[in-house]
Simulated scan of single mutants.
Amino acid sequence: MTPAEKHASIIKSTAKSLGFDFCGIAKAGFLEEEAPKLEEWLSRNYQGEMGYLANHFDKRLDPTKLVEGAKTVVSLIYNYYPEQKLPETEGSIKLAKYAYGEDYHEVIREKLNHFLEILREEIGPIEGRGFVDSAPVMERQWAQKAGLGWIGKNSLLLNKQRGSFFFLAELIIDLEVNPDTPLAKDYCGTCTACVDACPTDAIVGSGVVDGSKCISYLTIELKDAIPMEFQGKMDNWAFGCDICQDVCPWNRFSKPHQEEKFKLHPDLAEFTNRDWQEITEETFRKVFKKSAVKRTKFKGLKRNLDFLKLKKSE
């Protein structure tokens, strides 16, 4: 076994021990094929008000500009599909499933820090950084290069064993590691379930989403008033949206996660539409203290709820 093969074995066993469902490895380098795609996406203003997506263009395409001397990108999958879901009765308020429990940024970042510590103990001095939706890293493209799945029509990474209800995270390190084989095949075929189901027509091409029309963008990233053209099209989503994932045939393979911190907050399980309508800042702080929902702040959540024109329910 070569040192690069041994490193790959250590990395994959460590990933498993830390609860990651899948681990793939790719050689760090410039994402040449992605550069024109990203440039066109930005030129069409599909980023909406997410101006930060146009920043650090070179870093977004080249991990060696994020970690000096980077040789390897380790891509990781961490499941968040819930066993207990919010009530799914007609007219009930919806939150993206990833926001049911504690903020994934904090939970997974802690695991990535531990991951690097273990690698340094097992292998020796390693320079690197962990990323979880927190820096200009094209995580889906790197996961595909690492053999973990393919980019679906909804632009999400799809995995044959888990669908898409998972977080992606990366370790960019200066260690030589034996890479995995990229997944070249697209297993979506002629299916257009996600395209057909999107109520705001945000999926404008295969693997291309107009972010400015996406319900997740409208309820989280957009800071101004939600444009009236989306009135009646939000399908009661108050934070994020799972429509394109819920209808995806590959998500029939989703299995409940085993992460205690991602479990549905007990208070949320009892929320009625009246509770949502009358939510106070005090309740918001209590229920969403450790949640990703705090990102939109109380004011943002209220704006979303008001836009949905909720009817009070007993």
Results as ranks from 00 to 15, higher is better:
residue 107 V to H: 07
residue 18 L to D: 03
residue 60 R to A: 06
residue 36 P to Q: 10
residue 182 P to W: 11
residue 306 D to A: 10
residue 11 I to A: 05
residue 169 A to N: 02
residue 235 D to Y: 05
residue 133 D to I: 01
residue 13 S to F: 08
residue 234 M to T: 01
residue 12 K to E: 09
residue 99 A to M: 07
residue 192 T to Y: 13
residue 313 S to G: 14
residue 166 F to Q: 02
residue 142 W to G: 00
residue 230 F to K: 00
residue 189 G to T: 10
residue 273 N to V: 13
residue 130 G to M: 01
residue 73 V to C: 09
residue 253 F to D: 14
residue 310 L to D: 03
residue 288 F to A: 02
residue 285 R to T: 02
residue 48 G to V: 05
residue 255 K to M: 15
residue 257 H to W: 15
residue 64 T to K: 14
residue 141 Q to G: 06
residue 284 F to S: 00
residue 95 L to I: 06
residue 298 F to R: 03
residue 301 L to K: 01
residue 214 C to G: 06
residue 279 I to T: 06
residue 221 E to L: 00
residue 52 Y to V: 01
residue 21 D to K: 14
residue 253 F to W: 14
residue 35 A to Y: 05
residue 80 Y to P: 01
residue 81 Y to K: 12
residue 94 K to N: 05
residue 16 K to W: 11
residue 65 K to Q: 15
residue 277 Q to E: 11
residue 219 T to M: 00
residue 169 A to G: 10
residue 56 H to C: 05
residue 158 L to S: 02
residue 193 A to C: 15
residue 37 K to M: 08
residue 191 C to M: 10
residue 298 F to I: 06
residue 150 W to R: 06
residue 281 E to W: 04
residue 232 G to L: 04
residue 83 E to W: 14
residue 65 K to I: 06
residue 180 D to Y: 07
residue 269 A to T: 06
residue 86 L to C: 13
residue 109 R to Q: 12
residue 13 S to E: 14
residue 252 R to H: 15
residue 2 T to I: 08
residue 210 D to M: 02
residue 145 K to P: 01
residue 193 A to E: 14
